[in-house]
Design a protein around this nucleic acid. Structure first.
Length: 279
DNA sequence: GACCAGGTATTGC
DNA sequence: GCAATACATGGT
């Protein structure tokens, strides 16, 4: 038996667990009653919690951190420098940066990101979380009490769309099956897509039925560490029209995807200030 | 009951 | 090509 894992320290500057896990980039990190967050990544149950000035990761060994989770949490990037560069571009963006400076862009697993954002289309975040939760419960390997790994493409590829009925994903079920069959069958190699030239990567992802420009950008940004990707959803289209008319994503530079995430948070934050009665 | 939600495929002009 | 429209489901 392995010894219990020693908690791993995470970079506390420009990293707020709440902002990072609740900014809409991921759907499988849950707040616990004590304010820490529980997630399942690669079949491992993880906890991230604030302890005074420190942020600790439990559930992964130092070696697993070094080989995988450091990159998963984007620990190497200098978000202070990114914020300074973005803030210099525009006052609204500067405000978004300072309000949401604790957001880090997670590098989730490509297959999970692909499924998650297929489920996200024409849908709202609470319901996306519910669908993904049922998806894992129904088809994922159990990895702890009431905890399930994300289902493998091979498992999902064997199913017919009707088999997804219990997760209530609606018309998206057939898209998930198509994605699984392409990935499991080798027609779409996500590891290769991750390092392709951006335009080719977009094309490759959009060969999946149900994956258009927005979902492809989300997979690139949140599942492949491609920070130049810039998902244009309804919120970002609004904020672009209002504050950046005529501007293209490249206006924000090589970390446009981070700018996009700050603006997404900012836009929704402002909306909720205007409508405090809605969640 | 209409409208919306981190869109996309299909259809019609 | 580009503007409507359907698509499942659940919340407001």
């Amino acid at each position: 038996m392995a010894l219990p894992d020693v908690p791993v320290l995470l970079q506390p500057d420009h990293f707020s667990p709440a902002q990072t896990f609740e900014c809409g980039q991921c759907f499988r990190w849950d707040a616990l009653p004590d304010g820490s967050y529980r997630g399942v990544v690669r079949g491992k149950v993880l906890t991230v919690s604030q302890r005074g000035e420190a942020i600790v990761l439990e559930g992964a060994s130092q070696e697993e951190y070094d080989t995988f989770f450091e990159r998963y949490f984007d620990q190497q990037r200098d978000y202070g420098a990114v914020c300074r560069e973005l803030s210099a571009l525009d006052p609204t963006l500067s405000q978004a940066c300072s309000l949401f400076s604790g957001v880090r862009i997670l590098r989730q697993e490509p297959w999970e990101a692909l499924c998650s954002f297929i489920f996200s289309q024409n849908n709202n975040i609470p319901r996306i979380r519910g669908i993904i939760s049922r998806f894992c419960e129904q088809f994922g390997e159990p990895c702890a009490e009431n905890v399930f790994a994300f289902p493998s493409p091979e498992r999902i590829a064997q199913l017919e769309p009707e088999a997804l009925a219990p997760i209530r994903s609606g018309f998206r079920a057939k898209y998930i099956i198509d994605a699984a069959r392409r990935v499991a069958g080798g027609a779409l190699n996500l590891e290769e897509v991750a390092v392709m030239e951006l335009g080719r990567a977009r094309e490759a992802l959009q060969t999946v039925h149900g994956v258009g420009p927005k979902v492809a950008e989300c997979v690139l940004l949140y599942g492949m560490g491609r920070l130049e990707a810039f998902p244009l959803d309804v919120w970002i289209k609004r904020v672009m029209a209002q504050f950046f008319p005529g501007k293209q994503p490249d206006f924000f530079g090589p970390c446009a995807g981070i700018a996009q995430q700050y603006l997404f948070c900012y836009c929704r934050h402002m909306y909720h200030l205007d409508r405090p009665e809605v969640s």
